[in-house]
Write a protein that binds this DNA or RNA. Structure first.
Lengths: 265, 265
DNA sequence: AAGTGGTCTAGACCACCTG
DNA sequence: AGGTGGTCTAGACCACTTA
């Protein structure tokens, strides 16, 4: 079998088979190894919600038949998506779309750890939810046009009653129609879980820019520190399938009783 | 073939073959999939410097013969080590021990990016090198006994003449015998490259704890900021093969013209 | 018992690099 | 031309899960 199979025709398989359209009824991915094409087709199906978070994908033999490739090639695509955190494999049960709506995954991306003791759940308090038009910066960060509608959510996280994190969160209004303060208050479980369950928006990865800044008056008051006190400022852009940005967040962290944990390799 | 082959005996292979001792002359790894056992044996060989950074490993068929497994199993072990950043594979050439002594890899773990413009090389200035005895904290972090000899190195990184990073670096004296201020000054290239080339110490991964702090008088003066100005404090422990800690570092970063970049997934 | 993913093997052809 | 890693296939057996 060709190591890099193009759009059709190969020696061993008898018939012409344009993988892109005939096998799966979907648009053609660019030239690349077969398993990467399969990965692309699977990603497309995921972004089209063919399988929803928590659901099982078809079994490996089924997918192999659907794409007209061997099970080993499907497996390599599934392994790659598993490594990306998009899928979860469970021996004897099947391959599932990764979900972050579970209670156990309280914080999808928050890397803040307490100096002492185990990581406990934080309380949250929603301070404000506004609809407004995206400025140039926010539009660029979220891949929108200047003036498109965005939601701005301000919320506080507290540990044992003491404020620790103040987040400003910008979301494209188009993707989060119907998001209200009441729904936020009512939802049990992590916010990214709500985004996934209620709006079908799954966060796959994020980029952060971290700085140390001096607390401004207003934010110092909310966080219970003196004006000018050092705070960790964490600007985060979160992406869904196919690297589309869907959230911009500016967090201010108190790091007098917590620290931001990171692993490098 | 057994999915999980124990210490000897299987159906297809004719002879008894204790993988641990007969095939490679090394200690037995615990029960696990074959390719993980192979990965463990390769890691051991790497930590014993059977192959040095930058050198090529034997080819896949050779390794398969050496360990008496199929090439596919060796490949899976090599792929895993490549994913860990321990090996580098180059099509047509071979599989090499990852090295960080190249000029291109100026900063192994430093995640600091300039706000504007491309990432340029920084100047460095060594301020101090002392020999002293490990206190309880340092000993614990480096897996030493309290009172063991450690080196403390203080150095500055500057960008365009302006100080940006002040690092205090603790190293086990036993591993870095003969490290002097002169050798540090003389060495061209990144410090981790020097550790690798001159002392055979390879950093594989690191953990960081990040905080925002207010600059103390002495450090503020060195970094050219006002006392009390916010600084990013980055405490890093670096590990070599088999997760042995070999470096403790406390960095103070100015983040007025740079930011710490992080990727989450 | 049947179905799932996990492991292991064997062999083929490919793209890339070097002599 | 010969060696290297990269891709793809086919088939076997295993461990785990469910019924």
């Amino acid at each position: 079998m060709d190591a890099h199979r193009r759009l059709c025709c190969n020696r061993r398989m008898p018939a012409v088979r344009p993988l892109s359209t005939e096998a799966a009824g979907e648009a053609a991915p660019a030239f690349s190894p077969l398993y990467q094409q399969i990965k692309g087709l699977l990603t497309r199906s995921l972004s089209l919600s063919e399988w929803k978070p928590g659901e099982a994908l078809p079994s490996e033999p089924e997918l192999a038949q659907r794409f007209k490739v061997s099970q080993g090639t499907v497996r390599k695509a599934l392994d790659a998506l598993t490594a990306d955190g998009v899928l979860v494999r469970r021996q004897g049960k099947g391959t599932f779309v990764a979900t972050h709506a579970e209670a156990q995954v309280q914080y999808r991306f928050l890397r803040l750890m307490p100096d002492a003791g185990p990581r406990e759940a934080m309380q949250r308090r929603f301070l404000e939810l506004k609809r407004l038009r995206a400025g140039a910066d926010v539009a660029r960060a979220l891949d929108l046009k200047s003036g498109d509608g965005v939601l701005l959510l301000r919320r506080l996280l507290l540990s044992g009653g003491a404020p620790v994190v103040l987040d400003d969160i910008w979301l494209p209004a188009r993707l989060f129609k119907g998001l209200t303060a009441e729904r936020l208050e009512a939802y049990r479980g992590p916010m990214y879980g709500m985004f996934e369950a209620e709006f079908g928006v799954q966060m796959i990865r994020a980029e952060e820019q971290i700085r140390a800044i001096a607390a401004a008056e207003a934010e110092a008051a909310v966080l219970g520190v003196a004006p000018g006190a050092p705070l960790l400022q964490v600007e985060r852009r979160s992406f869904t399938y196919a690297d589309r940005p869907v959230e911009l967040r500016r967090g201010l962290y108190r790091t007098d009783a917590h620290y931001y944990r990171n692993e490098l390799s």
